[in-house]
Amino acid sequence: MWYCLAASLFFLPFYRRVALSLLAVSLLLAISNHTLQLPAIAALAATGAVAIFCWRRQGALTVAAEAFLVCIAAALALHLLPGFQNLAIASGVKAGPESAPFSFCYNFDKALIPFVLLGALPTLLKRQAAPPANRLWWLVLLLSIPLLLLAATLAGGLRVESHHPAWLGSFMLANLFFVSLAEETLFRGWLQQRLSQRLGNLWGLAIAAVLFGLAHFAGGALLVCFAMLAGVIYGLAWLWSGRVWISTLFHFAFNLMHLLFFTYPFWQAV
């Protein structure tokens, strides 16, 4: 089921009919094994109806429909909708001796965010790009990933510590499809795009990055600051390419480099 769900997300930007077919199979499997229970099924049925209505753009009511879909997406991101039984993959594990313990799951609810928001905004996954004047800026953007992690190390939030945990493959699947893609769809595909349409690209980039940082408030002030800077990186990747998948790959690359070479999710004194 989880591989089918991941495949549906993979095909969504390229072959929408294939993606929706795989999503339908994933939903049926999730219902059969009780990953989706009655409250979630009812909520998803209502959300699907609103998404279809919003996609067809029937008058001014689409503003309210889009607001509803965005609220549903936010609730999915925060795991607020009842009836989802996400699969716990690792609980209280430590990537290394100086890393803090953490847990992660395969999140069915969060994985649905791209499908929900696509009903609200047809250009969610692909819009006109605003590329930099010089392609070398892409190299600068790539180099900013390790530089930001090193800056976090100098600030005392991380330590250099290499890892290759047994659960690495599961982490990569979960982080790419059920975390990075979901968050990039919400913060770049929808939020930054809507802000850019109304306020311009610079303000859209800045506000989306700030809100992305504030979404990490539970990790403390240092994490909020570095998440904001990471949000600028992801926002530029989206702005220059016009593709959510590009910002998703930057997001995933940052998280993977963090896990492989630094204390993850942060440094904890022994």
Rank of each mutant, 00 (worst) to 15 (best):
A133K: 15
L202E: 12
R135E: 12
R159L: 08
S144R: 03
L148G: 05
L202F: 10
L150H: 02
L125P: 13
Q193W: 02
L202I: 14
N134T: 15
T185Y: 02
L124Q: 14
Q193F: 00
H163R: 01
E183R: 02
E161C: 06
L202G: 02
P165I: 04
L154P: 04
F115L: 12
N201K: 13
F171E: 04
Q192L: 00
P114R: 11
Q192N: 04
L112C: 02
R135Y: 14
G119A: 15
P122H: 14
L125H: 14
W138T: 00
H164F: 15
L142Q: 07
L173G: 08
V116G: 11
R127E: 15
W138M: 04
L154S: 09
P146K: 07
S162F: 12
A174V: 09
L112N: 09
L176I: 02
S162W: 08
E161R: 00
F177W: 05
Q192V: 11
L199S: 03
V179T: 11
R198K: 12
G200C: 02
E184S: 06
L142Y: 09
A155M: 04
V140Y: 14
L142F: 10
L186Y: 01
L158Q: 00
D109I: 06
L112K: 13
L125Y: 13
E183C: 00
I145E: 03
P146N: 08
Q192T: 10
A133Q: 15
S196Y: 06
V140D: 01
G169W: 09
A133W: 14
E184P: 04
E161L: 06
W190S: 03
F178N: 08
W137E: 07
V160N: 07
L118V: 06
P114V: 09
M172F: 08
G157M: 09
A152D: 01
A151Y: 01
L176T: 06
